[in-house]
Design a protein around this nucleic acid. Structure first.
Lengths: 216, 216
DNA sequence: CTATGTGAAGGTGTTCACAGCA
DNA sequence: TGCTGTGAACACCTTCACATAG
């Protein structure tokens, strides 16, 4: 018999995906206290969603008042594991890979890119921001040595599956894939997020003609 | 009284978002005929999803056989409006904006970037691939003259809302937003897709600890 | 009297299971 | 017989409505 109570239940993925938006809104607003209404407004969701999402993790708010921003932010960081430094490796130091390294250096210090690797001898040894491009062979070693938990795939589609397999083999369980390729994974408990610009734009094309509303 | 029949109903957004993946798989596989099973495999979805998605638009398949690839691909192009050229404008010619122009030039000729604009006089007039960066003031003119239906926002968060408002004012109904900012839209029938790297990575951090499966 | 926390209701999307047709 | 097309069942998510606590 399963429990379906609010607090013992597995957290919905949709909730997890909204938490970072709440965290950013809290930081930008920089208020001491905030209501679910204001937080929703700032992050692009409804007040009910905000309250329900937060309630999965306990009762952080004060009825009639709202939430204490600093407490809430720290709570969200804890839930997302951002409080104990998540380290990532970027595979592929092409245009996209280098752009990612530079991007994450200037925003979000919560997920830190610890290494960049590439298969091309011409780019190995080159400097990308504060990092030196290392050879692909060293992937597993780097993951082990630097306790890396997240892999970011920024290689051409032909190489993506092999990289994915090696990341999983090395113990990585969270992958962000920018290669325009559907990755096959048979291991359990691996979470892959795909970001595919071409697919996004083609889907958007549909709405150029017949459009509907959307949330962030 | 509303109709809930398969074929008169509004197409689910989830379906629309999978169609581009099917289209790519069809192109890559380059077979004459294909089953829902094979198509699902190649695009990362189940055969039932493939069949149900396609069935919204009619019965393209042959029972006991499968689908004719070329017919199916053309059907999907038509549904997504990719058959009559969707044109887009990129706002912001920074690192991300220029990367987008270059990216879409080399893949996907289905959505064509027709113009790049920026507010910074230092970059106006510069060449990005085959395009010349034009001044932001010309945004509305360009959209009108070149019949542009899609806007891509690649400006810093502080300027994103203003750009969004102008795009909508100029008649754009489909927007791809790369600015790390929740955009507020009150006009109806506007579709906005957000791509926010920082939020994606922070959400992924959650799964570094407790992971679950995912689909492309 | 305000804003949270949460059951209940309503929607949307996915999976199952099989009827129906080549 | 094999694979499509599709109701029905199920799971997930969002919205509503309100009891509840400060």
């Amino acid at each position: 018999m399963e429990r379906y109570d609010m607090h013992t239940r597995r957290i919905p993925e949709a909730t997890i995906r909204r938490l970072p938006a709440y965290l950013r809104a809290l930081t930008l607003l920089d208020e001491e206290r905030i209501t679910s209404e204001a937080l929703g407004q700032a992050s692009g969701y409804t007040s009910e969603q905000v309250r329900k999402d937060l309630a999965y993790f306990g009762a952080f708010g004060t009825r009639g008042v709202g939430y204490e921003a600093s407490v809430l932010a720290q709570e969200i960081r804890r839930i997302l594991q951002l409080d104990h430094g998540v380290r990532a490796v970027v595979v592929g130091a092409g245009r996209l890979g280098t752009a990612l390294v530079r991007h994450t250096d200037e925003s979000s210090r919560d997920v830190v890119i610890e290494a960049v690797v590439d298969i091309n001898p011409a780019v190995i040894g080159q400097q990308v921001d504060h990092l030196t491009v290392e050879p692909l062979e060293r992937l597993e070693t780097l993951i082990l040595e630097r306790d890396i938990g997240m892999g970011i795939i920024a290689v051409p589609p032909s190489g993506a599956q092999a990289v994915c397999d090696r990341l999983i083999g090395a113990g990585i369980r969270a992958i962000l894939n920018f290669a325009p390729k559907a990755l096959v994974v048979d291991a359990p408990n691996i979470f892959i997020q795909h970001i595919d610009l071409t697919l996004e734009m083609q889907a958007l094309a549909y709405f150029v003609g017949s459009a509907a509303h959307s949330k962030p």
